[in-house]
Write a protein that binds this DNA or RNA. Structure first.
Length: 944
RNA sequence: GCGGAUGUGGCGUAAUGGUAGCCGCGCCAGACUUAGGAUCUGGUGGCGUAAGCCGUGGGGGUUCGAGUCCCCCCAUCCGCACCA
């Protein structure tokens, strides 16, 4: 019987579906294992060969774990809300739900062909109201929570209101937008609206004016991770800073836990490092610098009086990571957005400062970033007092200080900070050295080429900390400012709160309505708030988001929130929902959550390092705090699949002609390389006829050949339509079958590594699969497996393979596993082995990789049940025992010859025999060995 | 600039500190064929007729022994980038 993969694959895919083979239920008698692929966004282009790489790897592992006795949850669904479908809707008027549906169907069709073991009964898409109901529900819980730094968890906002009624803000230690101070009396006397405004300062989902990334072209704000180099990730449009009222998630409250949690998960170091950088923890000090009122030169009075309750009016809070350099402060810098610029600027400087601030604020993010090295700034005319040295220092404004990190104000230490140094040099401000490698190694900063940013050394010219190592000095300064009541040691994070509003149509509506200008949540029993129909997917005339177009869309007459949620809303808790996808009472039942717990293996691309993987961790930690999820980290082990790059082919056109010269002859001509469709090139040899028919321009093309062939050049590039190097999995499944494609994708190399796609290599795997098939058939092509006792060699081949495959599966080394299968099949073919005792276990081993062919063979072997239910073979060491071992004998570490000794021989038995040998004597060349190292069953090394 | 990863034949890659190049592609030779972009067999790191010598980006080091561990440098890729 010929190996007819088309028939076999179709047959078994239908059968699996019919019998519900991959349906999963809670089973307390078996341990659970949760394998998840990152939520795909179903784009219109469908899958290319790079997409399934991770799905194949996770499917192999899921199947393997099932055969090892685990109850495996392996679901799949779609991240369906998002910009592409909506942009398409704007252009064509077609409802994004329709586009999404089509794309989902296409994805499903492509996935089905690859024979994945997904439990499709658990599937959903984020745009399903049954699903986004729980996204909205979670948002309401965040709205109704604050973060308590003492308990280190989210708590109900009602507790906070009670605390305010009893004690005001006395002793408050919570995450907040800005510090507020009021008494219980003030709270109790406040109106309902005032109370709501105060609470907004603490909610985990809050509404606030903030500087956002506004993308005019997309008509929406974007999160930080959706902007790269000042351009939107989707579409690449310019982004500007804009002050807008937005929904925001207080992700920053979880910064420390997000950082600490990284130590508990098994992710790659590089991904953990990306997250650590994104969270950006820095330890330092917050210090108040009082304003030296130029009209009252007796600043000491102000200084003495300014810390009691009048901080905001009279002083700036700065953040520094180097409190040890406080004696080197020679000026201060405020960001252009700083609130106090207006009040402190002197009349003489007013015009200049205003001009600068206007210029700086109106610059696009992109311009600002492009000109980072250009120093700009302006003097306010005002002075501050260094609270430690009591010196009077000028206050400047510059855009090198960012408004949203720290407090938007810095103490500048030009001698020891490169940016302050550049600024001081540019504006001719004093530079004072306060740190040196040693106490007597002070130099003149005027002679410096750059600042001394060194984090080691000792303090000099620094009053009471002179002579201290910098680390110690920092602590001493913090202690001092604490005593003085003008500052404290603190930690700052780069991680910002996440802007959660999008002025777009195709997303989850907020469960929010407005009364008296304040937001209120829709009652939970009215969820979901279903996305309404609109006549156009564009903003209104007055610039409101598209949802404002929906007719009669109010909550009992109150206006609703017209923004929708961003893409990450729906993808932040989907893994929990898969545990219990049909539950209409809860996001996930206690029973399901406690059984499935969290994702054991998460597979996907590294591009989600700072987006999805931060938000989902935040989201899950919140759900953990409110008791919905029993694990505070959602993804225990994570594998980043490497990108599959395209391999482009080129032809070389001689400039000004329609003549093409073969690769190795092109040096003699002036040529232009032109991308050529990889489908008309085979092993870099161009199909000339196909090329002439490819495009009208090439109809009359002429060629200069080498050895009668036209050889194309090649290059590794991103896979893209315009480069004609896209390889579509459907074509390959059609030509070689899913099992071959699955094994070939694994064979390409380690899953995590980026690698080029080279279709040529698939032939080798295809040959191997057919060879494997033939092991089960006799010369006439009849299925024929004997019950004869295998030979020693056959047993060894099998057990060697069992061991190797198991080890490789456990460490996700699927490429080496495929090659182990090849070796085994080569050996069995060599031995003409057609024995059940060998071929049955081999079939099971390979079923995770090539589920269709093995299922067919399994059934031919006479089994009724699916091979998925088969018991995984156990490795038996006894088959590996050898009587003899062939020792490599090396001289000074270089292998020269081999000698065989009984496996039972120890070093004492081997050494004399080795030294006696004529070959060894020849290599010794009369010299006496200094040492003979013998590692049993490993190596003999003679040192001379 | 900071951080991370990677570097091995013509190509993809393999090697618990122990025989460098397994497996596959490609290439070469042969067999079978009307034919070959089918199948099968053998060969294939470089230099050398050979014995042999040289070889894992470069340079040091640890070790009986280093592709693997340590230090310095180079190249490529990825992430962050005025984060005080």
């Amino acid at each position: 019987m010929e190996y007819n993969f088309r028939e076999i694959e179709k047959k078994w895919q239908a059968k699996w579906k019919e019998t519900g083979l991959y349906k999963t239920e809670i089973d307390n008698n078996r341990p659970k294992y949760y394998v998840l692929d990152m939520f795909p966004y179903p784009s219109g282009a469908g899958l290319h060969v790079g997409h399934p790489l991770g799905y194949i790897a996770s499917d192999i592992y899921a199947r393997y774990k099932r055969q090892k006795g685990f109850n495996v949850l392996h679901p799949m669904g779609y991240d369906a809300f998002g910009l592409p479908a909506e942009q398409y809707a704007i252009q064509t008027g077609q409802h994004p739900a329709i586009t999404t549906e089509q794309n989902v169907n296409r994805y499903r069709e492509q996935l089905d062909k690859l024979g994945f073991s997904f439990d499709w009964d658990r599937s959903f898409k984020t745009s399903d109201p049954d699903y986004y109901k729980w996204t909205q529900w979670t948002f309401i819980q965040m709205f109704n929570s604050y973060y308590c730094n003492q308990a280190n968890q989210a708590r109900p906002i009602s507790e906070l209101a009670e605390a305010f009624a009893a004690n005001g803000t006395e002793g408050l230690d919570v995450a907040q937008t800005k510090p507020l101070e009021f008494t219980a009396g003030e709270w109790n006397a406040a109106s309902e609206k005032e109370k709501q405004e105060i609470l907004m300062n603490y909610r985990l989902a809050y509404l606030a004016d903030s500087w956002v990334n506004w993308c005019p072209k997309l008509g929406t704000v974007l999160a930080n991770d959706e902007v790269v180099n000042g351009l939107s990730v989707r579409g690449g449009y310019p982004v500007e800073r804009k002050l807008m009222k937005q929904w925001i998630l207080r992700v920053s409250a979880y910064a420390e836990r997000l950082l600490q949690g990284l130590d508990k998960v098994e992710w790659t170091d590089s991904l953990k490092e990306i997250q650590r950088n994104w969270i950006g923890r820095s330890e330092g000090a917050a210090v108040w610098f009082p304003l030296a009122n130029p009209e009252k030169p007796d600043w000491k009075k102000i200084y003495m009086g300014c810390y009691e309750g009048v901080k905001n009016e009279m002083a700036f809070e700065i953040f520094t990571t180097r409190p040890d350099t406080i004696f080197g402060v020679t000026f201060m810098v405020l960001c252009p957005e700083h609130e106090m610029i207006e009040t402190i600027t002197t009349p003489e400087q007013k015009a200049e400062v205003e001009a600068y601030v206007t210029w700086a604020k109106n610059r696009s993010e992109r311009e600002r970033q492009a000109e980072v090295k250009k120093v700009s700034g302006v003097f306010t005319g005002a002075f501050a007092i260094n609270p430690i040295t009591e010196e009077r220092i000028p206050i400047w404004v510059s855009d090198y200080v960012l408004s949203d990190y720290g407090t938007g104000a810095i103490m500048a230490v030009p001698a020891h900070d490169s940016r302050d140094f550049a600024f001081a040099r540019h504006f001719n401000l004093p530079i004072r050295q306060v740190v040196a490698p040693a106490i007597d190694e002070v130099s003149n900063p005027d002679t410096w080429e750059e600042s001394m940013d060194s984090k080691t050394g000792v303090c000099v010219n620094s009053g009471f900390i002179t002579g201290m190592p910098v680390k110690e000095a920092g602590k001493a300064v913090i202690a001092k400012i604490n005593d003085m009541g003008i500052g404290y040691g603190t930690v700052n994070y780069r991680l910002r709160d996440a802007i959660f509003s999008r002025q777009r149509y195709w997303g989850e509506p907020f469960p929010i309505y407005y009364k008296d200008g304040m937001p209120y949540t829709v009652p939970e029993n009215e969820l979901p708030v279903v996305l309404p129909e609109v006549d156009q997917y564009l903003p209104t005339q007055t610039g409101e988001p598209p949802l404002a177009r929906a007719k009669g869309w109010t909550w009992n007459g109150y206006p609703r929130e017209y923004s929708t949620m961003p893409g990450f809303a729906g993808s932040s808790a989907y893994y929990l929902r898969y545990m219990d996808p049909k539950n209409d009472k809860e996001l996930v039942s206690k029973e399901a959550d406690e059984y499935w717990q969290n994702v054991d293996l998460y597979v996907g691309g590294a591009e989600h390092g700072t987006g999805h993987l931060i938000y989902a961790r935040y989201w899950n930690k919140f759900l953990f705090d409110i008791g919905v999820s029993c694990k505070d980290e959602p993804f225990q082990k994570l594998i980043n699949q490497g990108m599959i790059q395209g391999r482009s082919n080129f032809v070389y056109r001689i400039v000004g002609t329609n003549k093409f010269v073969s690769l190795n002859l092109r040096k003699e001509y002036e040529t232009t390389p032109i991308h050529v469709d990889i489908n008309i090139v085979n092993n870099d040899v161009l199909d000339i006829e196909a090329f002439r028919n490819w495009m009208p321009d090439f109809k009359d093309a002429e060629f200069i050949l080498e050895n009668g062939k036209y050889i194309c050049g090649w290059e590794i590039e991103k896979m893209s339509k315009s480069k004609y190097n896209v390889q579509n999995p459907d074509d390959l499944v059609e030509k070689y079958g899913a099992d071959t494609l699955r094994m070939y994708e694994m064979f390409l190399g380690p899953v995590e590594m980026a690698k080029p796609w080279d279709t040529n290599g698939i032939e080798g795997v295809s040959r191997f699969i057919r060879k494997f098939w033939k092991l089960y058939f006799d010369g006439e092509g009849n299925f024929s497996v004997s019950d004869d006792e295998p030979t020693k060699g056959e047993w060894k081949s099998l057990h060697k393979t069992i061991k190797k495959i198991e080890e490789d599966n456990e460490r996700f080394s699927f490429n080496t596993a495929v090659s182990a299968f090849m070796i085994c099949v080569n050996e069995l073919q060599e031995a003409k082995c057609r024995k059940r005792a060998i071929l049955e276990p081999l079939c099971i081993l390979m079923s995770a990789y090539a589920p269709h062919i093995t299922e067919e063979l399994w059934s031919l072997l006479g089994h009724e049940e699916s091979i998925l239910k088969a018991t995984y073979p156990t490795y038996n060491e006894q088959y590996m025992v050898e009587d003899e071992y062939l020792y490599p004998v090396s001289f000074n570490g270089k292998m020269r010859l081999k000698m065989s000794f009984p496996a039972s021989f120890g070093p004492k038995d081997i050494e004399p025999k080795v030294l006696e040998s004529a070959d060894v004597q020849k290599w010794l060349d009369g010299k006496t060995p200094k040492k003979v190292i013998i590692v049993p069953k490993k190596i003999v090394n003679i040192v001379f």
